[in-house]
């Protein structure tokens, strides 16, 4: 991987991490937040996005043709998927650690993101997986097809 591609990956990873945090405050997904205070999260997120963009564009010239070291659109798309998926994975893991005391054993199995309003990702996943492990033969068809 070239230095340019690595820089782009870092840009996407950091800005995705921040964008997910900001979006989670709007969605009320407290189980995904690293910092409990909504306004602080939004401010830090905005700051992180601004800072990483400034670093990316100030560090080196970025208007470069793809055959001279720039990134073509397809490669950009692939790197964006890697970077943003890594940001999602880090968000889920880190927020589960930070919010390990947020637990709600009653979370219904099809709640999805709504479970993350009052519990961490790890706790929600544990409850859901146990439920489906016990009930999947009878409930799965009903869940998907009504």
């Amino acid at each position: 991987m070239s230095q340019f591609a690595f820089d782009y990956l870092l840009l996407v990873f950091v800005s995705s991490l921040a964008a997910i945090q900001i979006a989670a405050t709007f969605g009320g997904l407290h189980g995904l937040l690293f910092v409990k205070h909504t306004l602080v999260t939004r401010a830090l997120g905005g700051l992180a996005i601004t800072a990483v963009f400034i670093w990316f564009f100030a560090d080196e010239p970025r208007n470069i043709n793809d055959y001279k070291g720039g990134l073509d659109a397809n490669y950009q798309g692939i790197l964006f998927c890697y970077g943003s998926l890594a940001a999602v994975a880090v968000t889920l893991a880190a927020s589960s650690l930070v919010n390990r005391r947020m637990r709600d054993g009653e979370a219904p199995p099809d709640e999805g993101f709504d479970a993350l309003r009052k519990t961490s990702y790890y706790s929600a996943l544990k409850v859901i997986l146990v439920f489906w492990w016990r009930n999947w033969p009878t409930r799965m068809k009903q869940y998907f097809f009504g």
Binding site: D110, G112, F113, A124, I128
Partner: peptide, 9 residues
């Protein structure tokens, strides 16, 4: 709906 089963949607 599948993503919702693992709290990803």
């Amino acid at each position: 709906k599948a993503a919702r089963l693992i709290c990803l949607a």
